[in-house]
Amino acid sequence: MADALSLVVEDLVVMGDERRPIMTLDRLSLPRGSTLGVRGPSGAGKTTLIFALAGLLPNVSGRISWGETDLTALGEAGRRAFRAAHVGMVFQDFLLFDELGPAANAGVFALFSPRRSRHHVRTRAERLLARMGLSSDRSSTATLSGGERQRVAVARALANEPDILLADEPTASLHREAADLVIGDLVAHAREADHTLIVASHDERLLDRMDRVIELAGGARAAA
């Protein structure tokens, strides 16, 4: 099935803590292997959309279908299992375990994945780090630069060979040069492996590399 994990979002409503809708999206569809940028000012709902697409949010109605799987119909454990099998995520502030080295961070997935795939995850994590020019034999990531840390995080997101890559402001904490390296890594890997890549960002250099860009404002799609 070539279209196995294409994305279809319909009538999406995300309720906030106060039982009021904080984000709505009538319709969005994305073929497998394409790249999408989500632009918008702070508070526009970019992070909410990324989290909703990852199945990280409760109180979501409508439909978020990745291929045959409708995330809104799954329970918490089912969404976790879906993420483990299909989704890689990158965050603005990296969220590494500082006390672990780059290889352990990038391969953190191996700690809870099935025994038979552990070795594979670890080797792939190390190969990704090597390709990014990062040494994996450090015992801590605390002393790495911001750009290096984010690239470790990208390697972590890719180590489990996800079909879907979701990135929330991946370059916002980085200076230009480091940001460009991270953009290069993200886009190159997504294209090469035919991943679907969705990026929420302010960074025009990053958005320019996407196939499509949608714009959010006030928790809804802004008029094009």
Partner: peptide, 16 residues
């Protein structure tokens, strides 16, 4: 808590 939430985001089971 953020590190634990990250594990959830990566798809780690609650048991883990």
């Amino acid at each position: 808590r953020r590190q634990l939430a990250l594990l959830a985001a990566l798809g780690a089971p609650a048991r883990f």
